[in-house]
């Protein structure tokens, strides 16, 4: 391992970041606010109908929440959590991601087979990109070069060039691709296929699948292993994959594409997020109505917290005790 990276890890282990979690509750039409460190539910705030995708604006001043049944993305003031406006998201917005330029928001409209691009400054839809049947996952490379969308019934990854908001390439993947995530060095794209129970690693330069991993858990029926949410650790070695009704999070070595550990969490684990210091991993568990908190260094589940009905999306914000700690630390990717 790169020694600088190790030193960086050491530095972080001595610092403590307090953080707040914002979790959308699909069946409660509300947002749960949880203290990340203690796992305490602080409050529940009403939002639009069937809230799912959630993310902060780049400057963390606003919180965007996809209210799927209201066909809109709500803009919340990040401090007061009051709804201050709406974004024209198109019908039935579910998952969305914000481009690193902080300006473009990409959202899938499942019923219409399109991805809508919203200009966050103008609050206007600037493009609609026709994709496959039932678009779902969105991932954006950290260097901003590619936006990808997965379509669940077409079973493809669509490569969108944000320069002209059009599809440049398509990659066929296993059935029902749900979520996608770029490696932190932007070389690989990881895609989970819910029905096939697999994880594909796609080479970003060739757009071809370079490796595939089929999950296998002793004592769990293959049909129940349904990979959904996926999150890359900034060390560029570890990848976390939520396995839905298998009630586990898989820890994957991205180089060898093997599972190093399965972590038992709540029922129907769906989306994942890190604490700002990457010490903790949070999972939303739709059926058991809770979130699990995982100690990332020890790879141990430490806590589960009941938050409300059908927790779905999760966004994390560092508590701003002073100006320096309000930003997420930047990791240096390890050499491969």
């Amino acid at each position: 391992m790169n020694k600088y990276f190790f030193m960086l890890l050491m530095t972080f282990s001595t610092m403590i970041f307090a953080d707040t979690l914002y979790i959308t509750l699909e069946k409660d039409n509300a947002l749960a606010v949880v203290d990340g460190e203690t796992g305490q539910l602080l409050k529940t705030v009403p939002v639009g109908q069937r809230p799912r995708g959630i993310a902060f604006s780049k400057d963390q001043a606003y919180l965007y929440v996809a209210a799927s049944d209201d066909d809109t993305i709500q803009i919340l003031d990040a401090t007061t959590l009051q709804v201050s406006g709406n974004l024209p998201s198109g019908d039935d917005p579910e998952l969305f991601k914000i481009h690193p330029n902080g300006l473009w928001l990409y959202v899938s409209n499942e019923d219409d087979n399109i991805v809508t691009v919203v200009d966050l400054k103008e609050k206007k839809a600037i493009a609609e990109i026709a994709v496959g049947v039932e678009p779902e996952g969105i991932a954006i490379a950290q260097n901003g070069q590619w936006v990808v969308n997965t379509s669940e019934t077409t079973n493809m990854v669509h490569w969108i060039d944000p320069q002209n908001q059009s599809i440049k390439d398509n990659t066929l993947v296993d059935p029902r691709p749900r979520a996608a995530e770029f490696s932190v060095d932007n070389q690989w794209l990881f895609v989970t296929s819910e029905i096939a129970g697999s994880l594909s690693r796609i080479d970003v330069s060739t757009k071809q699948v370079s490796a595939k991993l089929n999950f296998n858990i002793a004592g769990v029926d293959d049909e129940l292993i349904q990979p959904v949410g996926v999150l890359a650790h900034p060390n560029n070695e570890m990848l976390f994959v939520a396995l839905g009704p298998a009630n586990r999070v898989a820890v994957v070595d991205i180089e060898t594409m093997t599972v190093t550990k399965y972590l038992l969490v709540g029922q129907r684990v769906w989306n994942l997020a890190f604490s700002p210091d990457f010490k903790r991993l949070y999972t939303t568990n739709g059926v058991s109505n809770d979130i699990s908190i995982i100690n990332v260094d020890k790879l141990k589940v430490t806590k589960s917290v009941r938050v409300g009905h059908y927790p779905w999306g999760i966004a994390v914000k560092a508590n701003s005790t002073d100006s320096s700690s309000s930003k997420s630390p930047t990791f240096v990717p390890a050499e491969r």
């Binding site: 669940e152 079973n155 059935p175 819910e194 049909e223 349904q226």
Partner: peptide, 10 residues
């Protein structure tokens, strides 16, 4: 071969 048919399994 596996087909997705909106029933939660392949």
């Amino acid at each position: 071969f596996s087909l997705a048919g909106f029933k939660g399994v392949k």
